[in-house]
Amino acid sequence: MAKDIVAGALCCVGTFFFLLGTTGLLRMPDVFTRLHPSTKCDTLGACSIIIGMAVHSGWSWELPKLVIIACFLLLSSATCGHAIGRSALRRDIPYWRKKTGEVEGGDGS
C-alpha cells in the first residue's frame, strides 16, 4: 500500500512537470529559450514517472530495464537539446533579446 502511494505521488509530480514543460514550450519566444523548459522539465518528468513505475514494480525483471531507460533519458535529452541548439546557432537563427529600453528600468532582480 505504501508502495502504491509513493508510486502515485511520483507519477503526479511527473505529470505536473510535463504540463510545465508544455506551458514553457508554448509561451517562450524563440528556439533557444524553448530549449530550457523542454530539456529540464521533460527530463525530470519522464524520470520521475519511470522511477515511480520502478517502485510500483518492486523487485522484478522490469526494474533494471526501467533504470536503464531512466539513465538513458538523462543522457539523451541533454544531448538532443545540445544538437538542436547547435543547429539553430549554425543556421544563424537570431535569438530573442530583451528590449534595450526595458533593461534599464524593468530588471529589478
Binding site: R34, L35, S38, D42, I84, A88, R91
Partner: peptide, 11 residues
Amino acid sequence: TTQDRVLGVNI
C-alpha cells in the same frame, strides 16, 4: 523555424 518543429517532435 524548423528547429522548433524538431524540438516539438522530440517532446
